[in-house]
């Protein structure tokens, strides 16, 4: 799957290889089949639980990898997120878009990991705080894409997350506000600042958007 410059507005714009599950490919409200799936998962149906997690595992992993810049930490944080989703499914409001709820959990999990790293760095001088972005670059990518990835990894998490949620996970602005639990105006400010910082770093690296 490759990213486009903005959010896909229809399921057809998304990954053609992805199984059909609207909550994954079309961030927005939940349709009837999604609701039915969630209700069955809540009731403990093993197949529904598996299907539900399969539908969110890719966006959750992409988000955690981009926020933590380390494959091992991202795998652990993704697993923690999926476990929390299952354990707290009873408290989920079915009228709220499922994906924004899931991203909220993933975000809190990443923040916990981020704090753990900071404490670890404090307790163990010399430990690496930010291992950098190499995990994102296993696939062959163009030089510009590599440069953009490096610029993205150089952003503070506060700014990186809005870029990730908008440009990579295709959430709407209102959905990002929901995930971050901040007003829409704050989201807009952060996105503009994040893009400016991204542009500055990208140009410093020799790129020209």
């Amino acid at each position: 799957m490759k990213y486009s410059g903005g959010p896909p507005r229809t399921p057809e714009d998304s990954d053609p290889e992805a199984p059909l599950l609207a909550l994954r490919v079309y961030p927005g409200g939940n349709n009837e089949s999604d609701r039915s799936l969630m209700l069955r998962a809540r009731a403990g149906d093993a197949h529904a639980r598996q299907q539900l997690l399969a539908g969110i595992s890719e966006p959750v992993y992409r988000y955690t990898l981009r926020m933590l810049s380390n494959a091992e930490d991202a795998r652990d944080a993704s697993q923690d997120t999926l476990v929390k989703v299952l354990r707290h499914l009873d408290s989920y409001d079915l009228d709220r878009p499922f994906l924004t709820w899931v991203f909220g959990i993933a975000r809190n999990t990443c923040i916990d990991e981020y704090r753990r790293r900071k404490r670890r760095a404090w307790d163990e001088p010399g430990d690496v705080v930010d291992p950098g972005p190499p995990a994102l670059h296993l696939a062959m990518q163009s030089e510009d894409a590599e440069r953009l990835n490096r610029s993205l990894a150089a952003l503070s998490p506060l700014y990186r997350e809005v870029i990730v949620l908008y440009h990579f996970e295709h959430l709407k602005y209102t959905e990002i506000a929901d995930v971050l639990e901040v007003p829409l105006g704050t989201v807009m400010n952060r996105i503009f600042r994040a893009r400016q910082k991204l542009k500055d770093h990208y140009e410093n690296e020799g790129g020209e958007p």
């Binding site: 990213y3 595992s57 992409r62 795998r75 999926l82 296993l138 510009d144 894409a145 440009h167």
Partner: peptide, 17 residues
């Protein structure tokens, strides 16, 4: 940035996640 974003390959989750 649109064309550059379009060049980035999305990472895939581990199969056993």
């Amino acid at each position: 940035f649109g064309p550059v974003f379009a060049q980035i390959v999305a990472p895939r989750a581990p199969k056993d996640l």
